[in-house]
Amino acid sequence: MIGGQHLLGMQQLDSEQINAILSTAQGFLQVSRRTIKKVPSLRGRTIITLFYEASTRTRMSFELAGKRLSADTVNISASGSSVSKGESLHDTVMTLNAMQPDAVIVRHPASGAAAFIANRIDARVLNAGDGQHEHPSQALLDMLTIRQRFGKLEGLKVAIVGDIAHSRVARSNLIGLAKMGAQVRVAAPKTLLPRGLVEAYQCTICPNVEAALEGADVVMALRLQRERMEGAFLPNLREYAIEYGISTAMLDRCNPDGILMHPGPVNRGVELSPEVVDGPRSVILDQVENGVAVRMALLYLILGGEPA
C-alpha cells in the first residue's frame, strides 16, 4: 500500500492503491457525522500544513482530517512566517525537519515544489497542490464522489471543462481517471489547451463544450482564474461565460443521472451559471465532505494504518 510513502501525485498510484484509499475514506466518512468526531488513530503524531498559497477548503480539510484522527496539527502560511522574511524554501524545510514532524502537507505555487521538499525531509510529504502540476487529494475526493453515485469508475464518461492548461486538478484527474478506466474528454478554449495533452494523457479533445457534455456521466467544471485575462488567453469573463460556461440547458445533454462537479471556489456566473451550482445534478458539497474523509484516509494510511 502507500504506508511510509510520500504522496506527490496521482502518477505514483496504481488502481489497486486508489481503490484501497477510496474504500478507507468511505469508512472514515461516518467519523465526521458523529457527535464525537474523533478517533485515536494518529494520537501523538505531528502534522504540519505548509501553505505558500491562499487556501481555505484544502488547508482546513487537511487540518480537520488530522484533528479527527487525534494528531497534533500546526499550520504555517507564507505570510506572517519566516518565509515573508526571505527565507529560502530549502532553509524553511530544513528548519521544519529539525522539529521532527511526521507529515508535512504542502501547497506551493511552483510545480515540483512537493518533490523538492520530499527530497530533503524525513517526514512524509503530502502534496496539497504544487503549481500547475498535481493536486492528488482533490482527484481522490472527486473519484470517491463519483464512485458513491455510480458504484464504479470504469467505463464512465467524464467531461473536464475549462482552463486545462493551468489546472493541477485537471492533471491529477486526467491521470487518476485513466488509471481507473474512465473515458475522459476535455473541452477548453484553444488558448487554454496545453500542447501535447493527448500524448501526455489518455483523453480526447472535444471541439466545444456541448460535444463534451453529450452523454456524459460526470461533468467537472474548472475554476477560471481571473488573471487569465492577462496574457491574452481570453477577452473577458462575459465572453467566457457565454461561450464556455455551463448552464442548465447544456447539462440536459448529459446522461439523465449525470452529475456536476467543481473543485471550488466557484465563480458563479462564469464557468457555471448560478442555478446549476445549486441544481439537482450538483454534488459540489458532497465533494467538500468527501475531502475530509479522503484526507483522513491518506494521513492514516501514509502514517502506517491498515487499509479498510
Binding site: P194, L197, A200
Partner: peptide, 10 residues
C-alpha cells in the same frame, strides 16, 4: 513547451 511541460505543469 511540449508533452513534458504539460505533464510537469511547467
Amino acid at each position: 513547451e511540449g508533452v513534458i511541460s504539460t505533464q510537469l505543469g511547467l
